[in-house]
């Protein structure tokens, strides 16, 4: 297992340097958005585990909860992509304010459907 010996430290080095670069180069706004994304992912995973392992009995509730996590994740990810200053060249005509307005509108529509499903 010679390669693993050499690759193990380089891998952890790579992860460490990635983490370091993320911590140093990312604005606090984007970090808080990332924290929200992590939160959505974790709670979606928890609900999905419950559905698989225990029961899907109030199936509409599961659908609503899981769909709200997935939908909110998608909306937030697109918000993050659009407000990231490094992506400015990609979204020239989309200002961060416009992106936030889209995010707010999309979230309200999503929540309307989710509450509809919740029963």
């Amino acid at each position: 297992m010679a390669p693993s010996k050499t690759s193990q430290p380089t891998q952890s080095n790579a992860v460490l340097s990635l983490w370091k670069a993320y911590n140093e180069n990312t604005s606090t706004r984007l970090k808080s958005v990332d924290a929200f994304l992590v939160f959505l992912m974790l709670s979606g995973i928890a609900q999905f585990l419950y559905c698989i392992l225990v029961t899907n009995y109030p199936f509409n509730a599961f659908l609503a909860g899981f769909a709200s996590c997935v939908g909110q994740f998608v909306l937030t990810a697109s918000l993050r992509a659009q407000v990231n200053p490094q992506n400015r060249s990609e979204f020239k005509e989309v200002s961060p304010e416009r992106a936030f307005a889209d995010f707010a509108l999309g979230s309200i529509v999503l929540h309307f459907f989710v509450y509809n499903f919740l029963g």
Partner: peptide, 26 residues
């Protein structure tokens, strides 16, 4: 089991608040 999974589903809130507290966005 319900209580365990309710705690599991609520746990991400702790993560979120902890991370936000750590980042402390202004």
């Amino acid at each position: 089991i319900s209580a365990v999974f309710a705690a599991l589903v609520l746990a991400p809130w702790v993560v979120l608040l902890g991370l936000w507290g750590f980042i402390s966005p202004s």
